[in-house]
């Protein structure tokens, strides 16, 4: 049951969750357009991608209620269809 762990970057990683948020882990800062810090209470965060979260910029799971659908790019460099 060995798994080959993928090499991960020291700086962090962004996971584009199908039909869901953008997961960000690692060392980073979230700031407003004018540079003010956005309050953050956890290391790994989920950023809203559907636009319907009540706690933006974070995800609150509302994408599931509104039937938000994404299309995962099939090959690197392809644009999302929606």
């Amino acid at each position: 049951m060995n798994q080959k762990p993928q090499e991960s970057s020291n700086d962090g990683a962004i996971v584009i969750c199908p039909d869901g948020p953008i997961l960000v882990r690692g060392e980073f800062e979230i700031v407003t357009p004018s540079g003010g810090a956005v309050p953050r209470t956890r290391k790994t965060v989920a950023l809203c991608r559907c636009g319907a979260s009540a706690i933006k910029p974070y995800c609150d799971g509302t994408h599931k209620l509104i039937g938000f659908r994404t299309e995962y790019p099939a090959t690197p460099g392809t644009k999302e269809a929606t």
Binding site: M1, C17, G20, T41, T44, V45, A46, I55, C59, D60
Partner: peptide, 26 residues
């Protein structure tokens, strides 16, 4: 309030990496 935000993160990790990762391995 904490669970609204935390579990929106955890559900992604638990579904894909924990449960999904476990099924890929076993």
């Amino acid at each position: 309030d904490e669970h609204v935000e935390a579990d929106a993160v955890h559900e992604q990790i638990a579904g894909r990496d924990l449960a999904g990762g476990l099924v890929e391995a076993e």
